Computed example of a mutant assay.
Amino acid sequence: MIKIGIIGGTGFTAGELIRLIIHHPKISIKNIVSQSHTEKLVHLVHQDLLGEKKIKNIKFTRNLSKEIDIVFLCSGHGQSRKELHNISEHIKVIDLSQDFRINIQSIFNNRNFIYGLPEFQKERIKKSNNIANPGCFATAILLAVLPLAKNQLLKKDIHISAITGSTGSGKKLSDTNHFSWRNNNISAYKIFQHQHLQEIEQTIHQIQKNFYSKIYFVPYRGNFSRGIITTLYTDSVLSLEKNQEIYEEYYKNHPFVMISDVNIDMKQVINTNKCILYLIKEKDQLIVISIIDNLIKGASGQAIQNMNLMFNLDETCGLRLKSVRF
């Protein structure tokens, strides 16, 4: 069994990790660290875990055990660098913050972090001991554009709009997380300036080095809890059928990405590690719609997927999840 630890155990991503881990056949939880809830039973914070035998008597601890194989850092942006000072070098790390996603920030404390998008660089992830888990918007957007970049087909600007649920902002309360603000409401934010743009641009340039056009990204806050739906469009001289062939070919060995022949909706992926893509061609524009669950494929599920690869397990182990359709 792979012995795991979690630091920052009370947030949304940690809660999702625990829910996945208790049904993973190859993982055992060694300890879950929380400075604010030390010695409190985990199921009293993540109350949906009440009655789960694997978590029944586990309490949050103040310090990380040294008897673990891998640690998931869920403390939030800016905290992971601080946490690494107290983690033994033999312990593998998957960081769910943005601290190590950009190449110039990826080496820290003798650790070299690999960008953990399996559909981009699965073989490198398998050989790595340190993974920077991608951002949720970045995951949805990159999965919509990777086949084009791989085939050197990005010639013009890319235009993107995407809407995410309230869990995308984390558990810490803010003005735009209040129910009374979110309910029956929607707003754009960080227009053309979202932090995930850096990792999107970096990844595209690694694949298609001659891409010099711009990426225009407009993110929205939605009035729902979880999920991301992204609409991307860019110039394409190829037919819809040829584009579909390119996408099918690119993702044929990636079990969590699928191409739909009919229009898609977000409930198809909620509570799963899937990304579903739908392609449309209008005149000279290729439109790609992408849907993911921001807490699973956009965070904790992708972290488990990366862990499976790092330990030479089946990529889908513990992640064969069905959507909550109704």
Rank of each mutant, 00 (worst) to 15 (best):
G222N: 02
K297R: 15
I215S: 06
Q152I: 02
C136S: 15
I163W: 01
I280H: 05
H254V: 13
T203D: 07
K242G: 00
L146P: 01
D235W: 04
I204L: 13
S65G: 09
Y216R: 10
F211D: 02
L142R: 04
S180L: 14
K53C: 03
G9A: 10
L197S: 11
N133R: 08
H159D: 08
K122S: 14
V218Q: 05
I102L: 13
K54H: 10
E89V: 00
D99Q: 09
E39W: 00
I131A: 09
H178D: 10
G9I: 06
Y115W: 12
K127A: 13
D261L: 12
Q121T: 08
L232W: 00
I6C: 10
V262H: 15
A162H: 03
G116S: 11
K3M: 09
M1H: 11
N271S: 12
I276H: 11
I160N: 01
F120G: 10
Y251K: 09
G301P: 04
E248T: 10
N63A: 05
I291S: 04
Q105D: 15
K281L: 06
Q195T: 13
K82A: 07
K252T: 13
C136N: 12
H196S: 14
H90N: 15
E67A: 11
P118W: 08
L173C: 05
I296M: 10
H37C: 09
I141H: 03
E67D: 15
